[in-house]
Design a protein around this nucleic acid. Structure first.
Lengths: 145, 145
DNA sequence: CCTTTCGCCTATTTAATACAGGTTAACCAG
DNA sequence: CTGGTTAACCTGTATTAAATAGGCGAAAGG
């Protein structure tokens, strides 16, 4: 389905999606139209979900991050899920197995803001919050091989 | 530091970083060179950290995701951190306050692979693993206002 | 063994970006 | 109040990049 050249293309694009077709095609050893066609198919097959920008939350004032584990109170599951979706400061969230039901990432500017958001959740769920001190692993892709 | 137009530009780019300057400038109501200059400065100031692609792990065979909480055994903190960094299947990881020391996201293909990775961690830390069933929140940005 | 398909190439057209030059509005100092 | 300076924007043009058309050759299937 995906050959070695496709993987090379993906790895290059993860680092820099604005590379020109010319330069990209030189790196992978194909002509521009060939690489263009491969890109088209990678998008068509949804291997590439989107071209996007990586924005620094700190530059937007969000200097703090927390991981929040959420256990909805009985009967509150759907309401809690809705609340999470409607809280834009929760920038990622997964529904998981185990005692916790949701594990999310929360971006915020001040402790007061964190308090407000957690208070709102606390009406409908038990929560457990860990403040992020550092991120030893930058977002990356698992091995493509 | 960042005005309304900059925020509009960022929001558009998050959705589609391959939009042409022409189209982008029409949407924000400026000329192409003006938007180009704004982009240049947003990159210069590292508000835009990178242009990148969002790749579907499932398309690469990684159909399973887990959240792993890691508590290194006494004296094992640095060794565990090194191990995490060297495990490419751990695609995100934060160092946090609280009982857990690290909370990471693990992409894997089979339960056997999960078992192998957790076994390796278990020599140096206590771990607590939650399998991701769904992701109600797609990666997004907190409010820019 | 012939035909079809697929991936690739080169050459060319079309489109996007980068650049140059000029205008206006805001701000500060004389 | 006024001249100078800066900053952000504009239009028009040059340059560069991407998309497309057309053709070649290898591999797969009838």
């Amino acid at each position: 389905m995906l050959d070695e050249l496709d993987r090379t293309i993906l790895e290059i694009l993860i680092d820099d999606a604005r590379i020109s077709l010319k330069e990209l095609s030189q790196k992978v050893g194909l002509s521009s139209p060939s690489v263009s066609e491969r890109l088209r198919r990678l998008e068509e097959k949804k291997v590439i979900r989107a071209f996007t920008v990586d924005i620094d939350p700190v530059a937007l004032g969000y200097s703090l991050t927390a991981i929040v584990r959420v256990r909805p109170l009985p009967g509150m599951l759907h309401i809690v899920e809705k609340l999470i979706k409607e809280t834009p400061e929760i920038t990622e969230c997964d529904k998981v197995t185990g005692d916790d039901c949701f594990i999310g990432k929360l971006q915020f500017r001040t402790m007061e803001q964190l308090d407000t958001i957690l208070d709102r959740l606390a009406e409908k769920a038990e929560t457990n919050t860990s403040i992020v001190k550092a991120s030893p692993v930058k977002r990356r892709l698992p091995p493509l091989s």
